[in-house]
């Protein structure tokens, strides 16, 4: 028990743990839909595209979340626009847009900031979380989680059967955009903890794990959020005791849960499938 409590005597560890758990939980929730929408790459794209926004915000002296949000949405709009005005497939449009924006971010960074800043933006700096950061992240996370929970059945129908959703008069376009805006918001909140490079892990791995474990969407959503939260706790503590990268430890803790689900999931796991195959051969 001491092992768990002792690190929390430091204020920076309290902040780090809180911000990591909040971030990873909301990312986990969102990832459940991203996985079902086939939007895993979209998470990657938004995460990388916010980089120039962050740097510009730094230059202009405005909150970096604002810059990140603007560029996250810009990326989404550009990807959608390219898809509509050319015959390019979606993954191609995504690849063109986010690498370009990310490169723009790198160039901007090289002109203005020190390499420490670059490190923090790329890999996160959860141990440097201030109270103010924490409150900002908590507010954005609360907003995102509320919208996701209130409209969860509508989002799920849109993901499952877009045509039918349209046929019963759901505002499918608005719902899709809401989800994309929430994706951009969540990415911004997760930068502090995970950085640009690893955010996508938090936006994909929990959902993928929930998908392997659950038979229906409600449990999948709960499991995805849970995987995120557990990964955050395990990651923050292991990084404290072993003195390893916090963002990296959080992601690896999520990957480990995915691996366990892949092996031992009662329905879709490797083990269960093997047992079923054996039984069938015996029968």
């Amino acid at each position: 028990m001491d092992y768990l409590i002792q690190p929390l005597e430091y204020a920076f560890m309290q902040n780090a743990l809180a911000v990591a758990v909040i971030t990873a939980t909301v990312c986990g929730m969102l990832s459940a839909w991203l996985v079902l929408m086939g939007w895993s790459l979209m998470g990657e794209a938004v995460a990388h595209s916010v980089l120039p926004g962050v740097v510009l915000a730094f230059i202009l002296g405005i909150p970096f979340g604002v810059g990140a949000l603007v560029f996250g949405l810009l990326a989404v709009a550009l990807i959608g626009g390219l898809g509509q005005t050319t015959a390019l497939k979606r993954d191609t449009a995504i690849g063109v847009v986010f690498t370009s924006l990310f490169a723009l971010g790198l160039v901007l960074i090289s002109t203005v900031t020190t390499s420490t800043h670059l490190q923090h933006i790329l890999f996160g700096n959860v141990l440097g979380t201030s109270r103010a950061d924490l409150y900002q992240v908590a507010a954005l996370a609360a907003l995102t989680a509320t919208v996701l929970l209130i409209k969860r059945r509508d989002f799920t129908l849109v993901a499952f059967d877009r045509t039918y959703a349209l046929s019963i008069g759901l505002p499918v376009g608005a719902l899709t955009w809401t989800l994309l805006v929430l994706l951009a918001l969540t990415t911004v909140t997760a930068l502090q903890t995970l950085g640009v490079i690893l955010v996508v892990a938090a936006l994909v791995i929990p959902g993928a794990t929930g998908f392997l474990l659950a038979r229906s969407f409600g449990p999948m959503l709960g499991l995805s959020a849970g995987v995120g939260a557990v990964a955050a706790v395990v990651g923050v503590y292991t990084s404290y005791y072993w003195d390893i990268s916090t963002g990296g430890a959080i992601v690896l803790a999520a990957s480990s849960q995915f691996l366990l689900a892949y092996l031992f999931s009662p329905r879709r796991g490797l083990l269960a499938r093997g047992v079923r195959r054996l039984k069938r051969r015996r029968a």
Binding site: L36, A214, S216
Partner: peptide
């Protein structure tokens, strides 16, 4: 083209 793996009963 409905997603047959979608977790819905």
């Amino acid at each position: 083209a409905i997603d047959m793996t979608f977790p819905v009963s």
